[in-house]
Structures are given as C-alpha cells and as structure tokens.
C-alpha cells in the first residue's frame, strides 16, 4: 500500500472508531447494572429451575426444546422429573399453558415469548443480560397499576413482580425536579426495600444472575461451543493462509 492509501485507511478507521464510543455517550438511555453472568452447569441449572417455576406459567420459550437442557448437564430423566410440568416428551418445546387471549385480558398484553429475549434487549446501553438483570431487580409497589407493581426500567409494565416472595417489596422514592424547560416533573430517584423477602439482597442478586445467565444461554444454546470451534477454524485457516502465501511466492519468483 502506498502512503496515501494508508492515510485513507487510517482516516476511515479513526472516524469509525471515534464514532463507536460516542454513540454510547449520546444515548440518554437508562443506566444498566452489569450482569455477573456465569455459564457453569450449576448456575445454568439453577437458572433453568427458576425459569420453569416462576416464568413458564406466563412466558413460553417456544424455540427451546426441553431436551436442549441436556447441554447444561441434566439427564433426560432429571428434566422429566424436575422441570417438565406442561409437556410429556423431552423433545417438546417449552410452551406456555396460559391462553394468549386470557393473558391479554388479565395483563393488557400477552406475555412475549422469551426464547431470544436476551438478544433482543441488547442496545448501546449494555447487553441484553444487563437489561434483564436490571429489570428483574427494579420492580416496586405501585397501587395505581392494575397488578399493583411497576418497574423502574420498564415504566407501566404489564408484568407483576413474580419474584417478590424472594426479593421482598420495594417502594420508590420520587423527587420533583425542573426539567430544564420550567416544568416540574416527578422523577424516580431510587428504590427502597420496605418488606424483606425470603432472601437477602445479595442472595437475590445471585439468583437473578443465574436466571439471566440461563436466559442468555437460551438465546443461543451452544454459544460457547461456537466460540471454541472458532479457535479451531482460525487455526486451520491460518495454516492455509501461510501455505497459500508460500505457494503464491513460489509461483511469483520469476515475475519482476
């Protein structure tokens, strides 16, 4: 490459690179807590248990088959005995028993399928897991809502706080602030635990982390295998690259 070409390439690169972090800065979205993800079998199994017990009654994961859970170290028998309430065969999809029309009547919206929720909720503000981790820890009591619950990250959410017996009940603190245009607006300042649940705050965060790890895994089962395969493929391609370079050089010896 001539010097000029390099300059062009560098200019393009600088512009693009400079753009990436700027995007994150200018986005005035909510701040998300970083999800402490763990992909060991024990955590994922715990997450699967929570998902089946607390979420599957409303949300399906219709792209996931029960027997996919063998990938996180469960046997078919264990899956059948401990996790399957709504299906008979392990090859079946994780469907929800709730009828969508009923759900719409009760919550105003049908609970969405959660198969790829961890991928869908990613944004410049953070990964989908970060969003979920924040979401599941920010429910608070709000008597003006039909379910009695609201959420700091998802205001006006149609979902009740299904994990409240674990986390306990939070209440929101509001402040009234000038929005910069002379209007006074009520802003949420923070959440306070007013009635403890069966878990301490740290224990609850850990359970949510397991659940979110599971939801992330569910978004693309086998993503670690994909990455480890990647190293192998790159190794093979690198060898091919070197060989083809040597071949090219051998052929081009006599071109001057």
């Amino acid at each position: 490459m001539s010097l000029l070409n390099k300059l062009f390439a560098a200019a393009a690169l600088v512009v693009t690179m400079a753009g990436l972090p700027m995007g994150a800065q200018a986005n005035e979205g909510p701040t998300l807590d970083k999800a402490p993800l763990r992909f060991d079998d024990a955590s994922l199994q715990q997450g699967a248990k929570l998902f089946v017990n607390y979420c599957l009654s409303c949300h399906g994961a219709s792209s996931v088959r029960y027997n996919t859970l063998t990938q996180i170290g469960l046997s078919e028998q264990q899956i059948k005995d401990n996790l399957m309430f709504a299906a008979d065969k392990t090859g079946e999809q994780m469907m929800v028993a709730l009828r969508r029309d009923d759900a719409r009547k009760w919550f105003g919206v049908a609970p969405p399928d959660l198969s790829v929720i961890a991928r869908a909720r990613a944004s410049e503000a953070g990964s989908g897991a970060d969003w979920l981790y924040t979401y599941l820890r920010q429910f608070y009591r709000d008597d003006s809502r039909p379910t009695g619950w609201n959420n700091a990250l998802f205001p006006g959410v149609g979902m009740p706080h299904v994990l409240w017996s674990l986390q306990g009940e939070q209440e929101a603190r509001f402040v009234t602030r000038d929005d910069g245009h002379g209007n006074m607006v009520k802003q949420l300042e923070g959440l306070e635990l007013v009635k403890p649940g069966s878990l301490t705050k740290d224990e609850y965060d850990e359970q949510v982390a397991d659940l979110v790890s599971f939801l992330t895994w569910m978004g693309e089962p086998g993503q670690e295998t994909r990455r480890s395969m990647g190293w192998f493929v790159l190794a093979v391609l690198s060898v091919l690259a070197v060989l083809s370079y040597l071949l090219k050089r051998a052929y081009w010896k006599d071109v001057h």
Binding site: V233, L237, L240, L247
Partner: peptide, 27 residues
C-alpha cells in the same frame, strides 16, 4: 496460475476475517 494462486491467498485472509465475525461476533 499467477492470479489464481494470489487470489487464493486473498481468499484465506478474507475467510479468517469472516470466521472471526461468524464465530465470535455474529451480530
């Protein structure tokens, strides 16, 4: 054979970039 061998070399470099995206950052 001159440009076929040269282009094959280019293909391997391209495939390396392609594989990095597919295996590590498909989004």
């Amino acid at each position: 054979p001159y440009y076929t061998v040269k282009d094959i070399f280019g293909v391997t470099i391209f495939l390396i970039v392609f594989a990095i995206i597919i295996f590590f950052a498909p989004e």
